[in-house]
């Protein structure tokens, strides 16, 4: 899992059927150092069931973890990254 910040939203009408109806967020991976939180430059498109808002700091899971967020145990959702938690706080030095 990674820490990231929601930087935007992606809209698509034409989707593969197994991705239909899912909200897609653009999440920038961030790294927390003692100087604060800064983007690493890596960006991922993740599905979102938690209604995360733009600017929110979130936890993004990949692979089977992401599929579990969409539908536990399922192997037939077309999802490889998903927002699994909206971060309220963190004890990491440098985090908000």
């Amino acid at each position: 899992m990674i820490r990231g910040r929601v930087m935007g939203e992606v809209w698509a009408t034409k989707k593969a059927p197994r991705l239909a109806g899912r909200k897609l967020l653009l999440v920038a991976e961030t790294c927390v150092t003692s100087d604060g939180e800064r983007p690493t430059g890596r960006v991922v498109v993740a599905t979102d069931l938690l209604d995360a808002g733009q600017g929110d700091t979130v936890v993004v899971a990949f692979g089977s973890g992401a599929r579990n967020a969409e539908s536990p145990g399922s192997r037939d959702v077309l999802v490889d990254a998903a927002v699994v938690q909206v971060i309220d706080g963190s004890s990491t030095p440098g985090a908000d």
């Binding site: 938690l50 967020a69 938690q85 004890s91 030095p93």
Partner: peptide, 21 residues
């Protein structure tokens, strides 16, 4: 371990488990 992370809005699969950075 450099910190812990928390947030009430989470997937069911997280189930309140502890997340560490």
């Amino acid at each position: 371990v450099v910190g812990t992370v928390w947030g009430a809005n989470q997937s069911d699969g997280m189930n309140g488990r502890r997340v560490v950075e």
